[in-house]
């Protein structure tokens, strides 16, 4: 995990005591750095938001989950929604709307779970994401589905088989503005194929990042030298598919032919991403993998995490 500040560490060292904690915490609040309260994913994004542009959002905390779980029956997959959930979500959702200057902003709703030991429980295989959710009712429904996903018989069975704790998983839900991406990119501050650590590799393609992450498009590839931030390699591919925000959800559509072979990034944009990648790598103390996107020429960061696959090999190389 990323290095925590003194203050964060103090926060983390204390035992979890969320009895009186808030149900809603915004990404740009210091409370949101607490993985026990908002889950590992939201906590990491919240730290990122301190210094970089991250789409605004709020977390429906584990405290809210706890209150909702009173009376829930894990065994049967029942979850009784608190009667005030709608009211609880409506206010921050409209605040978010005011921030984005939209009445009903499109949002991404993601589960961000924590186990009792405070680690991210995404590996439990039940990490839910709902993209392009519009309107309070839809957000409430998505929150409910995030919560429920940890209570389904399937999820419980999975956890049982994996030897993971069945009780005690708590789910926070992150509600974040879905910024319609013109171009999405994944930035690796090391070459994930060769293991080379002197260059940054960027994959970029049109629309939301799902098509790159899901491998349904062959993205453009840029290689930027860490030494002088010069683009040392550029491979423009024929980008056939892209994920867009549709009427409901995020369908994958064909890229119109005029755009397929056009470079998704200007060179300056690749360099801008590389520069941010370098800074984040320095903060993390190891190579990172960043998901980001451009909207109206503005760069937004959506995720930053250490590159795990690189460790063994590079450790050997360094010895």
């Amino acid at each position: 995990m990323s290095a925590f500040s003194e203050r964060e560490r103090a926060l983390l060292d204390g035992p979890p005591a969320h009895e009186g904690s808030r149900s809603i915490v915004w990404l740009d609040e210091i409370e949101c750095h607490d993985p026990f309260l908002v889950g590992g994913k939201a906590a990491s994004l919240s730290r990122l938001a301190e210094h970089y542009p991250v789409p605004p959002g709020f977390s429906l905390t584990t405290a809210a989950f706890d209150r909702a779980s009173v009376g829930a029956s894990v065994e049967t997959g029942q979850l009784i929604l608190p009667p005030n959930l709608h009211a609880e979500v409506r206010e921050p959702y409209h605040q978010l709307g005011a921030l984005c200057e939209m009445e009903n902003p499109a949002v991404a709703v993601r589960s961000s779970a924590v186990d009792e030991d405070g680690t991210d429980a995404a590996f439990a295989g039940q990490h839910e994401t709902f993209l392009n959710v519009v309107g309070v009712d839809a957000v409430v429904y998505a929150v409910r589905n995030c919560w429920l996903s940890f209570h389904t018989p399937h999820a419980i069975e999975y956890r049982r088989k994996q030897g993971l704790p069945i009780e005690g998983v708590r789910v926070a839900v992150l509600v974040q503005q879905l910024v319609v991406a013109d171009v999405s990119a994944v930035v690796f501050t090391a070459n994930p194929v060769t293991g080379a650590r002197d260059e940054i590799v960027i994959n970029a393609s049109w629309g939301l990042g799902e098509s790159i992450v899901g491998g349904t498009v062959t993205p453009d590839t840029y290689r930027v030298s860490k030494g002088n931030l010069a683009v040392v390699g550029r491979q423009i591919s024929k980008k056939r598919h892209m994920t867009v925000a549709g009427d409901s959800g995020t369908p994958e559509v064909e890229v119109p032919s005029f755009l397929r072979t056009r470079p998704a990034l200007a060179e300056a944009q690749a360099v801008e991403m590389a520069r941010i990648g370098l800074a984040l790598e320095a903060e993390a103390g190891r190579p990172v993998d960043i998901e980001c996107e451009y909207h109206a020429q503005k760069l937004y960061l959506l995720q930053c995490r250490p590159i795990t696959t690189l460790d063994a090999r590079s450790a050997c190389e360094e010895e």
Binding site: A106, N132, V180, A181, D182, V183, W206, G207, M242, V244, A245, G246, D247, T250, P256, F258, L259, R262, H295, A296
Partner: peptide, 13 residues
Amino acid sequence: RRLAGYPAPVRDE
């Protein structure tokens, strides 16, 4: 409306 969630180069074109 249908293009609102598409990349800007598509909307511009």
